[in-house]
Design a protein around this nucleic acid. Structure first.
Lengths: 197, 197
DNA sequence: TCTTGACTTGACACTGTGTCAATTGACACG
DNA sequence: CGTGTCAATTGACACAGTGTCAAGTCAAGA
């Protein structure tokens, strides 16, 4: 929706996207983005109030492009709780590498910037709802492992699926995506599904 | 050793420590630390070449004060691999909350600062060796779960014990320390110990 | 008394963000 | 055809924070 409508704005968003993707972290400066987008630095401020909001807008733009909502929502159609857990982990696993660059930047910015912290926290809260739904589905099936309340199970699943876990295994330890997905899934099953393994 | 010897240097380190502890993240500025230590901002540069090195020195100072090496090394005395795993997780769990403030700061700085990245990575490499030793002890007992190579098992244990996992469960989800420790231990056992649970 | 070393003071260069005012150029409307 | 409007540019500036530099202070010791 916001695409196509405002070509300069979109060019800026794409430039920010590319820069953040190629160098995860905080490195991308306003002038870098402007140069990449082929506009003046000041043009950025005509479209976004500040650096943080530009990055937040970039994540929203990515969500749009990738149709995140639909992809994650698919897991709702799974029949059993366990199938739902698997579907959700699979969908999220595929999504994480795509957003990692910008997500990492926002996480780092969140440490010093109130707005960035709020934006990122909202995003993670949305993801958490998916975890909670999967856990609730397990509980409905009477398949939630004893020893965890629904909240605790959600906390744990949310942590296992966090960007940080992905970063540790895939980026730092060099695992491939399939191994990562399989391992998180197996950990979640062993911990949360009653009588698993 | 570095303590007592150089009172001003130690005052600066203590000031940095307190500030980083009270506000994890990147907030502490050189002038804040100087003010807290009761010296001029320039005095900081007489003792440390730059902000990063001051923070790195602060972590080393903390290690000294807390006798990290000895505490972590204790787990080596455990008889079985499983006991060793438990001892190591327990020792590390107790240590994480103490270093969290400064560690978080270094992690954030590592994103943009080469020196900080190296310093933090070395630290985590040390911790990883402890994980590797615990995994090796399990393997020696023939108690390592099938499906993981020793390297993969180390990667996984290292990830489970990472600061980020602690932060997610304890800081963001509000778990208490005991629950955190028990859960990480249980996850590690289920995943890595053959025939566990 | 003279020297040395640790610390202070005040100034400055540099980088990056965000603001401002004046200007340009295209396009539409009467 | 002129005029207004809107998007974007240009160049200047304020501000914060790091790191550097030169000069000065002050106490302890030979």
């Amino acid at each position: 929706m916001s695409s196509e409508k405002n070509p300069t704005r979109t060019r800026i968003l794409k430039a920010a996207w590319e820069l953040l993707e190629s160098s995860p972290g905080v490195a991308a400066r306003m002038s870098d983005i402007a140069k990449k987008a082929g506009v003046s630095r000041q043009a950025l401020y005509l479209h976004f109030p500040n650096r943080t909001e530009l990055f937040v807008a970039t994540t929203k733009y990515m969500d749009e492009v990738y149709c995140v909502q639909e992809n994650l929502a698919e897991s709702r159609t799974a029949a059993t709780g366990e199938a739902r857990l698997e579907a959700y982990i699979t969908a999220w696993s595929a999504y994480v590498p795509k957003i990692f660059g910008i997500a990492k930047t926002l996480i780092v910015m969140a440490e010093t910037d109130e707005d960035a912290a709020r934006a990122w926290s909202e995003r993670m809260q949305d993801m958490r709802e998916g975890c909670a739904a999967a856990v609730a589905a397990l509980a409905r099936d009477d398949a939630l492992a004893p020893g965890y309340s629904e909240t605790e199970a959600t906390d744990l699943l949310w942590t296992l699926m966090s960007l940080q876990t992905w970063e540790s295994l895939v980026v730092r330890c060099g695992w491939d995506q399939a191994r990562y997905r399989a391992t998180v899934l197996s950990l979640a099953r062993q911990a949360l599904v009653a009588g698993a393994d």
